[in-house]
Design a protein around this nucleic acid. Structure first.
Lengths: 357, 357
DNA sequence: CTGAAAGCGCTTACAG
DNA sequence: CTGAAAGCGCTTACAG
């Protein structure tokens, strides 16, 4: 019943022109604004457009204008990824793209590097945004070889010649360690879920470096020359509950004095594993998660979190891609990092002797 | 450096024709197979295509062929949705679409019904797939008004004239209650997270009806005329940990004899809330979750789950959309439901007196 | 089995 | 300030 009209073919700019009593080119110029059009004529055209509910054919526009106004979003290669945060990126990227007049096309891992070549060579996409790229990712090469611009979300090694945008993970590490040490937690465990080996070279190193750096700067209360490696201990457990539980148990058996924890994941498993292990998060034990707000709020204790600012990262990636398309891209640009934000909630208790600033 | 080539414009079918020493139309026919081409000529064409790494321009193809080979994926309206499962749909839908030669374009909630009109009227998309549609969703009307086919994932009321595809939630309810009653659990709590009011009319009713039906059929051990409302008690808590905890606490205070639970969500919160409430899931208490495998495996006790079969639902939705496009759609078709699958894990213990089949 | 030509619906010089 | 015309790269009757 619905959906069944034989489709009396959509109106064209020619139809609009006829109805408005002007030429087709005037319609085009009225829409693009690339030539001034008298108010009277513009008005008639707008009326005609409204009456026919005209929208320009995107195929014709792409063909003639050599621009599809579509950005390809290359999804992560196979591996363990947080689907929830991926979806967050997709939604923000798509919304931002629309604000620039672009649409987002999904290119999945299944196609591999061929997918990149395909959407570029067929002129389906004007630019590419690549999520969670891995180190030895065959897609990096494909992106470099193709002649539409690409923006990486992430800063993988070997990124020379690419446009990278990401959260400042070093700052995130500093922020988390700084917050915990200020609250008096001088022994800190840092949990980063293990990924496939090729993905491991992207953000973890930066996060760890930032954490170590903050430990060195803020000191441990033991003077400038204390061994900073003892302040922050990194573990890379499996991302499952069982993996996290085991990792934490082992860690604590080696370092019973740990009172502060940072996790680069949904805090659900870490929180419950710590609780099951007899620790009282928010009372004696500190926990900071790098995660989205809803995940931080979704526990008995509201978890102080570092907002990974996926919306801002998404915006930056799209803005970058659009700019490269519209200025006629030319090579790589400096890495652009977004500052992380620490949101104070209830999971970081002060400990005796804490330097409350 | 990379990405910087001035782009000596992609090769066209004319270039291929010249290199192969044939006409442009022959190249086209060789590619489409709509006319027979001699092996010799076909060979030369293929060689030329490979040499130039030619791929047909999608704008031209769309313009001339009146088909973009793009399907628009309309994301859920604002509300509380499980981003993880949404992402699962997106990935499966995109992969399936590719297998039919189609691509997926993301249309977000932000555009509302206008987004649907836009991608349809501009001929950007050949068909639409709509996820998680709500009852009084203004997008339903837009879909009906537009002249490309639409497929709904979900079976909302007022779906006359639409093509619907979904999991058989009634069967899921039956399956879960059946499994628990067979294990001797005669008092069952069913947790369905509360959504925005307009979304509440889609699957929950079907799930509940199926659960009640199974309770009636299987009996409670108390004869055919027992009050079936007592077998299954439904609660609709907030989807957060705190909401689930409170909901379960209240439920149990009214019905202390509950030993079986079904949750229509990631079992993390229900599991931990039950455990925190003193129940031993897998030993004395049964829990079945409608969720993805990884979520079922991500807990101290492996949770027996009902696979929502998002991959199969996605496949069906895409197949339906492609069929409607390629046959020249004509109105609505019967609702197509996918059978749910119960995966036996460790969270449903037998209770004394259980009828072990 | 193959080729020359028209045309899909736009945009953009060119001309006034 | 406006119009007539060419052409983007395909596909598909039409003609042989």
């Amino acid at each position: 019943m619905s959906n069944s009209s034989a489709g009396q073919s959509a109106p064209t700019s020619k139809d609009v022109a006829r109805l408005a009593g002007v030429s087709q080119s005037t319609v085009s110029y009225a829409l693009s604004g690339k030539r001034s059009v008298s108010p009277d004529v513009k008005d008639r055209i707008n009326r005609a457009i409204a009456e026919l509910s005209y929208q320009p054919n995107s195929g014709a526009r792409a063909l003639r204008g050599r621009k599809s106004h579509v950005i390809g979003l290359i999804m992560p290669a196979r591996g363990r990824f947080d689907r929830s945060s991926m979806m967050m990126f997709v939604l923000h990227i798509a919304a931002t793209a629309r604000s620039y007049g672009y649409d987002i096309l999904i290119v999945t891992e299944d196609e591999g590097p061929d997918g990149i070549r395909r959407v570029a060579k067929t002129s389906l996409c004007d630019a590419l945004i690549i999520m969670e790229i891995a180190t030895a990712d065959p897609r990096l090469e494909a992106i470099a070889a193709v002649d539409i611009p690409g923006v990486l979300i992430g800063v993988p090694p070997g990124r020379e010649g690419f446009n990278c945008v990401d959260l400042d993970f070093a700052a995130a590490g500093e922020l988390a360690v700084g917050r915990l040490t200020r609250a008096g937690h001088t022994r800190i465990g840092l949990l980063i879920p293990r990924m496939s080996s090729t993905q491991d070279k992207n953000f973890p190193d930066r996060l760890i470096a930032g954490a170590r750096n903050a430990a060195a700067v803020q000191g441990t209360g033991g003077g400038a020359n204390s061994n900073n490696d003892d302040v922050v201990t990194v573990i890379r457990p499996e991302g499952t509950y069982e993996g996290v539980r085991k990792g934490l148990a082992e860690l604590r058996s080696h370092q019973p004095s740990l009172t502060g924890f940072i996790c680069m994941m949904n805090p659900f498993s870490p929180y419950h594993a710590l609780t099951a292990g007899g620790l009282d998060v928010g009372a004696t034990t500190g926990l900071i998660a790098v995660c989205d707000h809803d995940e931080a709020e979704n526990l008995p204790v509201r978890i102080t979190n570092i907002d990974p600012r996926r919306e801002e990262v998404s915006r930056l990636a799209v803005a970058r891609a659009v700019e490269l398309v519209e200025t006629g891209h030319s090579g790589a640009t400096p890495v652009q990092l977004i500052e992380p934000l620490l949101i104070e909630r209830d999971s970081v208790p002060d400990r005796p002797g804490a330097a409350t600033e």
